[in-house]
């Protein structure tokens, strides 16, 4: 039954991803997560940037907006402030979110809009056919780094935790069942919810086997209210811990900055007499 309901979120557009792409796993987790929360497609918007994973909005029958490379978060914040009743989900890849759009991430995190941000991290640029990304491991050979990447990779989880994120989780596209729970929890979290999903690129950086060997659940006694514990898990190199690293309740962006006089609710200008304002300039 749940499966049937999840089907209702599927659009007619067929995914364009390579066979075996990790993003299929993320999409497969997103449909049932939306179904579990019974989200109205007409009151939900999925916003993305540019990249393989940013194609995702087309495959879901909600409102969607594929924006420009790196701009998913500021666009999503504009949507949320203007139309705060909407469920806003931002999606994209590691290049989109941590490189060209990296400057926006920390500001989204500190403002804490009630937006879920699912990053499909494959540690490579896939759409442009295999160049190094901000999360590529040191020394990784790609088309743009034939002698090995010389740049230390970003640790996205540690980054958002350090910036004061109010919800942070990590999932693995090879484990869609857990991912459903994580995405649903992220959407339910009232605030900015960051979900790093390890989503391998079988074409340019096939890490399935390597990651399968390293992923494990966060320790049973992990306390997601404890930021230091979360940080300790985030910087582990021996394993890729999965689960909810951290959660915290604090005021959202749209709790203080939001549009209530929405024109679709009626004539937005009806209650405003500009002549009164102009009179004050006499």
């Amino acid at each position: 039954m749940a499966n049937l309901v999840a089907q209702a979120y599927k659009s007619k557009v067929k995914p364009t991803w390579c066979p075996g792409c990790g993003d299929y796993g993320v999409l497969a987790a997103l449909y049932p997560a939306l179904a579990r929360l019974e989200l109205d497609p007409a009151r939900t918007m999925i916003v993305s940037g540019i990249g393989c994973s940013s194609r995702l909005p087309f495959f879901v029958k909600t409102y969607g907006f594929q924006t420009a490379h790196g701009r998913v978060l500021p666009v999503a914040m504009g949507v949320k402030i203007a139309n705060p009743e909407l469920t806003v989900i931002a999606v994209g890849g590691d290049g989109d979110g941590f490189s060209i759009g990296g400057g926006h991430l920390v500001h989204a995190v500190r403002r804490n809009p009630d937006i879920t941000y699912v990053v499909m991290d494959n540690q490579v640029y896939g759409l442009t056919k295999g160049q190094t990304s901000p999360t590529s491991p040191l020394g990784m050979k790609t088309k743009s780094t034939p002698y090995g990447s010389a740049d230390t990779p970003i640790n996205p989880m540690a980054w958002v935790l350090a910036s004061g994120v109010s919800f942070a989780a990590r999932g693995f596209s090879g484990d869609p069942k857990t991912l459903i729970d994580l995405i649903a929890a992220a959407i339910q979290h009232p605030g900015f919810a960051f979900v790093q999903t390890m989503s391998p690129c079988p074409t340019f950086n096939n890490t399935y086997d390597q990651w399968r060997g390293k992923v494990e659940s966060l320790p049973a006694d992990h306390n997601p209210e404890d930021r230091l514990q979360a940080m300790a898990q985030a910087i582990r190199e021996d394993a890729i811990p999965l689960g909810v690293f951290y959660r915290q309740a604090r005021p959202t962006l749209e709790s203080h900055t939001r549009v209530t006089d929405h024109p679709a609710k009626g004539d937005a200008t009806a209650g405003f007499d500009v002549r009164g304002l102009l009179e004050s300039y006499r």
Partner: peptide, 11 residues
């Protein structure tokens, strides 16, 4: 970007 988003949101 936020202006584009707000407008897509109907404002």
């Amino acid at each position: 970007s936020a202006v584009v988003g707000a407008s897509i949101g109907g404002v």
